[in-house]
Design a protein around this nucleic acid. Structure first.
Lengths: 185, 185
DNA sequence: GCCCTATAGTTAGCCCCCTAACTATCAGTC
DNA sequence: GACTGATAGTTAGGGGGCTAACTATAGGGC
């Protein structure tokens, strides 16, 4: 489920030309931006192909991973709200994901005895074995995708992406706490 | 509409620990992968916030951009199939996007007089002025997001992302033409 | 004990993405 | 001129995001 994006990224001289018409267009920023969205989408696609061969979507896969992580150590099971928060998704969305996962027998919902508003979501044995059958291939694809990059290049890339993540975080802050004013229009 | 992803990226030592359990897990590859998806998603979110304030989705925006590009030079209008191909999306999806854009009066569909199977999609005057009202702010957000990166860093980042794009392209190739065998499981 | 607010989860309705099947047209072949 | 296959576009149905509104429970203040 890739997003609609320019499939063929524009050549840099096209961006320079467009910048003539739009003074706000920063050609190198635009180039990085388009490459970033495109590369993120392609990386997503590579793993999604593998997951969909195992009849599972990226969203459901992430939920299973969050629950597996829990199974490994944390004693307390997760609530839908926690899962939604960890995944950066709304609770409504998480309800839908858990619905389909439960329908397929990969997770179970059990009511919390102490607080009757809450539910506990757990991986079933079937869900865990299913996940463990998917993971090795998933990791191999990740490794193969990144194979052309040296360890040094990987560190550099993570550093640059972190700068962008930090910069993006500024956009969510209220205006008063932002270090640089956020454009509004 | 961000995707479900780990909101808080795992610390590197957690990845090392997980690699004990899963021999196929390459920690640095995994780290790059997660940062890439997350950064792509955040960059998407930053611009999508702006677009949605203007009552337009990323998908519809891209269609308008493709049509604006056309208006600038290319004499021949675009067909839905061309737009779908340029955007890397199915024709069925493009039908839906054009439906809503036409409903809102931003584009028009006119039948091709020569080949009665085909349609021509064009930006309306309203669509063009609407788009031109959105673009400056869109470009400013892009520039602001990338502001922390120097020109040198931008070039480096584009280079590294291009390597990943090339690597991802190997996964779509048929096995016979791939330079390195693609993992299948 | 009762109100008020906050919280957990769900539901309803929308958008955008997909695949698969369908309709209509075109273009060749016999 | 009718069959066959390819192509353009749409439709139908599903998944997974979202917001907004709703239900039920919890918990504090009076």
């Amino acid at each position: 489920m890739p997003r609609l994006l320019l499939k063929d990224l524009p050549r840099y001289d096209c961006l320079l030309e467009a910048a003539q018409k739009f003074p706000d267009l920063d050609p190198s920023a635009c180039e990085v931006f388009l490459h970033l969205l495109r590369a993120g989408d392609e990386a997503f696609r590579v793993t999604d192909e593998h997951l969909s061969r195992h009849q599972i979507s990226q969203g459901r896969f992430t939920v299973l991973m969050l629950l597996l992580d829990k199974a490994a150590g944390c004693p307390r099971p997760h609530t839908p709200a926690e899962l939604a928060d960890m995944g950066g998704v709304t609770r409504a969305t998480m309800t839908g994901l858990i619905d389909t996962l439960e329908r397929d027998g990969l997770v179970t919902r059990t009511p919390d005895p102490n607080d009757r508003r809450m539910m506990s979501v757990s991986l079933t044995a079937h869900g865990q074995s299913r996940l463990e059958g998917i993971l090795p291939g998933h990791f191999r694809r990740m490794a193969q995708l990144m194979a052309p990059l040296s360890e040094t290049e990987r560190k550099t890339l993570v550093g640059l992406l972190t700068k962008i993540l930090d910069s993006a975080a500024e956009f969510s802050k209220p205006a008063s706490t932002a270090t640089t004013p956020v454009v509004e229009n």
